[in-house]
């Protein structure tokens, strides 16, 4: 049975100094910015839980709405980072949506967009699980960043459309558990709540054994 190493990834925010006042300028910047800029603007909302007003799912969409581009705001909101395994694919899809929008891209926006980059730092927590019992003990010891890393960011690291926990459960033959964990909705709950849900899912299985 392979072991599971609990890791974490923390970050802070760096303003790139790039500010866009038109969709055209936004697009131009989007083509070239570091992929951690896309990570920041698309993923932070899931981490922060309702960092932005609820009507839109990410800061790109929110900016569009603030400037009256409601259709574009909706189209960008439907992008679900959890369905992606590459930030470049997200970048590509956003660019396509904007290029196909039919909007006049040179209209001056009343509110500018500030491109911010996530400065990410990986951390090993030195917590290892070898079975369900040690896994649930490990789960109890980790924080929100670690949870986010394994449930969300790991998809990008591994290039697989599944969270890290479920991947490990599959590897040890706990297929049902893997499915249950993947079903936990990150958009509907805070990470504090998600952690509680995961613990009870694994404990239920553990005590049923």
């Amino acid at each position: 049975m392979g072991e599971f190493r609990f890791k974490s990834e923390v970050w802070t925010s760096e303003y790139t100094g790039i500010k866009a006042n038109t969709i055209h300028a936004f697009l131009k910047a989007l083509r070239h910015v570091h992929e951690d800029v896309i990570y920041y603007h698309l993923y932070r909302n899931i981490f922060e839980f309702h960092y932005l007003p609820l009507d839109y799912a990410n800061s790109f969409a929110y900016w569009m709405a603030e400037n009256g581009y409601y259709v574009l705001a909706e189209k960008l909101s439907v992008i679900d980072p959890l369905q992606y395994t590459s930030l470049e694919d997200i970048r590509h899809d956003i660019i396509r949506i904007l290029e196909d929008s039919g909007e006049d891209l040179d209209v001056l926006c009343s509110k500018p967009f500030y491109f911010i980059r996530a400065v990410r730092m990986a951390v090993d927590l030195n917590i290892v699980a070898k079975d369900l019992e040690s896994f649930v003990n490990g789960l109890k010891k980790i924080g929100w960043h670690s949870l986010f890393y394994h449930l969300v960011t790991a998809r990008l690291k591994l290039g697989k459309p599944i969270n890290d926990f479920s991947l490990w459960f599959e590897s040890i033959g706990e297929i049902e558990l893997a499915r249950e964990i993947e079903k936990v909705n990150l958009w509907a709950h805070t990470l504090r709540e998600v952690k509680g849900q995961l613990i009870s899912i694994v404990e239920r299985k553990l005590y049923a054994h």
Partner: peptide, 14 residues
């Protein structure tokens, strides 16, 4: 207020 897990993460970053 934030749980032991988050404290452990801060210690790891430090």
């Amino acid at each position: 207020y934030i749980g032991e897990g988050n404290i452990e993460e801060i210690k790891a970053v430090a």
